[in-house]
Amino acid sequence: MGMRNYLIEGVSGTGKTSVCKELQRRGYHAINGDRELAYQGDPETGEPLEGLGHEHHIWRVDDVRALVANHDEPVTFFCGGSRNFHKFIDLFDGVFVLDVDLRTLHRRLDGRPEDEWGGKPAERELIFRLQRTKEDIPRSGTVIDATPPLASVVDEILRQVMLSPSK
């Protein structure tokens, strides 16, 4: 999709969906991977599986490869979390990992309905552990403090990729 492609990752509640929407609002090409590429499957084989949880939230690797290979856009941002990112992370020109402090994460998750990921107590417990351990996010990414207002977070990402904050 882009001549340059960037992955925006982070644990649930750090703002990946909000960043995606703001990039789109500003006229950038941004894909919400959690909505457009994700399914429940085996992170190693990609085999679809039914009714699992967070550790099986993966992206369709062939679709990611096809989107990255298409150069119709000058830049594309892939926003979302995937437990099989290791299968395609090498395709990206850069990786950003959104991070927030624990208080901000609590506040954001407190506003989630129970039918959205992170709305149930057990899901929140997992998110807080993942936020603390960083065990399932890319280690090679550039960390972006996502606690400031959304516009500032997106401005920082665009600055990092040397794009104008307002297209």
Rank of each mutant, 00 (worst) to 15 (best):
G2K: 11
G2D: 11
Y6F: 15
G10Q: 05
G10K: 01
S12R: 08
K16P: 00
K16M: 03
K16Y: 00
T17S: 15
T17H: 04
K21D: 08
E22T: 05
Q24V: 13
Q24D: 00
R25T: 04
R26V: 00
R26E: 08
G27H: 06
G27S: 01
Y28W: 14
A30L: 03
R35P: 00
R35F: 09
E36A: 07
A38W: 08
D42N: 15
T45P: 11
T45G: 08
E47F: 06
L49N: 02
G51L: 11
G51S: 13
L52W: 11
L52A: 03
V64N: 10
A66N: 13
V68L: 07
A69Y: 11
V75Y: 09
T76Y: 08
T76P: 10
T76M: 08
C79W: 09
C79N: 04
G81D: 02
H86G: 03
F88K: 05
L91I: 08
L91F: 09
G94V: 07
G94W: 10
V97Q: 12
L98H: 02
R103E: 15
T104H: 09
L105W: 12
R108K: 09
R108M: 05
D110W: 10
G111A: 05
G111C: 05
R112A: 01
E114Q: 12
D115A: 04
G118Y: 12
A122Y: 14
R124H: 04
R124W: 09
L126D: 09
R129G: 00
R132Y: 01
T133V: 01
D136T: 11
P138I: 02
G141M: 05
G141P: 10
A146E: 01
P148G: 04
P148N: 07
P149K: 11
V153K: 07
V154E: 06
V154F: 03
L158W: 11
R159P: 00
Q160D: 01
